[in-house]
Simulated scan of single mutants.
Amino acid sequence: MRPTDLVSPDSVCASLKATTKKHLLQELSEKAAKICGLPAREIFDALLHRERLGSTGIGEGIAIPHGKLAKLKGIYGVFGRLDRPVDFGSLDGAPVDLVFMILTPESSGADHLKALACAARMLREQGLVATLRGTRDDDALYSLIAQRSKPFAA
């Protein structure tokens, strides 16, 4: 699975304005609703449900919120860079400024885990992460992600 299997140019945002975790999840949900056709509220509820199980902040300023939705027809992702980091309840306590949200159908099984692994592997590349953090343009941000043309193994 490649990062571009998860995100499209329309699902990348280099300037998220959220100031809290809840607001960030709402902003991501609204963006996702436009690309997947489900109501933003359903997406937000799925993300919030998952966050109640434990923070999806993986540390070092990165979060990978995710959720499963019964009505979803495929796997969708939204990648964003926040203008200002927000407290996300990450285990390391670091505020989040990069977020890769993933939505999958309830029946996705292993594909859900493959998508999460793909996002996590991409965001472990320190050079890429530093470049993503310095990018302020949606198209340039997507281009950086698209350069990850090699699929990640599951």
Rank of each mutant, 00 (worst) to 15 (best):
R2E: 13
T4P: 03
V7N: 04
V7W: 03
V7Y: 04
S8E: 11
S8W: 02
S8H: 02
S8M: 09
P9F: 07
D10Q: 11
V12W: 02
C13M: 09
C13D: 15
A14G: 09
S15L: 11
L16Y: 02
L16A: 13
A18G: 09
T20Q: 04
H23V: 15
L24T: 10
L25N: 06
Q26V: 14
E27W: 01
L28M: 09
S29L: 13
S29T: 07
E30H: 03
E30A: 14
A32N: 03
A33F: 01
K34R: 05
I35K: 00
G37N: 05
G37R: 00
P39T: 13
P39K: 06
A40T: 07
E42R: 00
I43V: 14
L47E: 05
L47D: 03
H49D: 15
H49P: 00
R50F: 11
E51N: 05
E51A: 12
R52L: 13
R52K: 11
L53T: 11
G54D: 15
G59P: 06
G61I: 04
G61Q: 10
A63E: 05
K68H: 06
L72W: 02
L72K: 01
L72A: 08
L72Q: 07
K73V: 13
G74I: 03
I75G: 04
V78F: 09
V78P: 01
F79W: 02
G80A: 14
R84A: 15
V86H: 05
V86R: 01
F88M: 08
G89W: 02
S90G: 14
S90I: 13
L91H: 04
L91Y: 06
P95L: 14
P95A: 15
V96C: 10
D97N: 11
D97Y: 02
F100R: 00
I102F: 02
I102T: 09
I102L: 13
L103P: 05
L103W: 02
L103T: 05
T104S: 15
T104N: 06
E106V: 01
E106M: 05
S108N: 05
S108A: 12
G109F: 14
G109R: 03
D111K: 01
H112K: 05
H112D: 14
L113S: 10
A115E: 08
A119P: 02
A120L: 13
M122I: 12
M122F: 11
R124H: 07
E125P: 00
L128Q: 04
L128C: 04
V129S: 11
A130F: 00
T131I: 06
T131V: 10
R133A: 07
R133E: 15
T135K: 01
D137K: 02
D138H: 08
A140K: 06
S143V: 09
I145E: 04
A146I: 09
A146K: 00
K150F: 09
P151W: 04
P151G: 10
A154C: 11
